[in-house]
């Protein structure tokens, strides 16, 4: 049995009369210490999927299981790095991390806790910025804080909800490298949501595409068997990488076209009438 399993998960929103089905029959199983990237178009229900995995939302049908147990509520064993950082703006960098540490490891002494916090702040290369508040930091630094906070909880499963999508390209590349470094140092199960194929290929062991919503579901897996560590500078010249990237991109473009064709045409058929020309009467 795999570490994390989604079986026949459905999720929709809205009242019964006007229901919007976001996810329909989603099945996914992830092994321990696997890095899975879920890739999809915006609006396809990626964030809903993360919320389901985290336990922030409950599926309408089917179930999410971790270690064989059904996920019924959120918890620190499934750490989430939110898309918009979700840092508490009135706390400093260290206090933001400490809040999590204090909650998850209440048995730690004060000095142990301080060391623990410092370790994770150092880990995301934020040494020196411990006493700054989020608004004094750049977007990239804020995301690092968010990452440090989540990692400091030592979660069994790390959920990354488009963690880098709000960053500029340069910062994004730096943080991608950082993520890989962290993951290689301390392997654990990661589910990353992204809309960037390159990013997915660079980071993940396996890529699962999410078809466009509504009624989104997961498409066929793409296993990334590129050698680690992967170097972004040389990767572009690696034929295997290029092939894989093209396959995924083509698949996504195809499903998108398919979904457009499948979409029910709700346009109202107008009668073909022309006003009579009264001037000639």
């Amino acid at each position: 049995m795999s570490f994390l399993e989604l079986s026949h998960v459905d999720k929709g929103f809205g009242p019964a009369a006007d229901r919007y089905e976001v996810l329909d029959d989603v099945n996914l199983s992830i092994d321990r210490n696997e890095f899975v990237a879920v890739i999809g178009f915006s609006g396809s229900g990626k964030s809903t999927l993360v919320s389901l995995l985290a336990g922030l939302l409950q599926p309408d049908a089917g179930e999410v299981r971790m270690n064989g147990e059904v996920v019924t509520e959120p918890g620190p064993e499934r750490g989430v790095v939110f898309q918009n950082y979700s840092l508490l703006p009135w706390l400093t960098v260290a206090s933001n991390v400490e809040l999590a540490v204090k909650q998850v490891f209440p048995e730690m002494s004060r000095t142990e806790r301080r060391e623990h916090v410092q370790h994770f702040v150092d880990l995301v290369s934020l040494s020196g910025a411990e006493h700054k508040r989020p608004h004094e930091l750049s977007g990239g630094m804020r995301q690092r804080v968010s990452l440090a906070r989540t990692l400091s909880m030592r979660p069994d499963l790390l959920l990354l909800d488009e963690p880098l999508s709000a960053l500029d390209a340069l910062t994004r590349a730096t943080l991608q490298d950082e993520l890989v470094r962290l993951w290689l140092e301390d392997r654990r199960t990661v589910v990353m949501i992204t809309n960037d194929v390159d990013e997915a290929v660079l980071l993940a062991d396996r890529i699962v595409p999410l078809t466009p919503g509504p009624n989104a579901t997961l498409g066929p897996d793409f296993v990334v068997d590129l050698e680690r560590p992967r170097d972004r500078t040389t990767l572009n010249y690696d034929p295997a990488f290029v092939r894989l990237r093209n396959r995924i991109t083509n698949y996504l473009v195809d499903v998108n076209a398919e979904s457009r064709q499948l979409r029910v045409d709700r346009a109202v058929q107008l009668p073909d009438v022309v006003p009579a020309d009264l001037t000639t009467v």
């Binding site: 959120p74 918890g75 620190p76 989430v80 508490l88 009135w90 706390l91 809040l99």
Partner: peptide, 26 residues
């Protein structure tokens, strides 16, 4: 902020902690 509420839920803060550490400061 709903995001801050989500943080509290993931951290499993007790109702009192949620009030004192998240709700009141914001």
């Amino acid at each position: 902020d709903q995001d801050h509420v989500n943080v509290a839920r993931v951290l499993k803060l007790s109702p009192y902690d949620r009030l004192v550490k998240i709700v009141l400061p914001s």
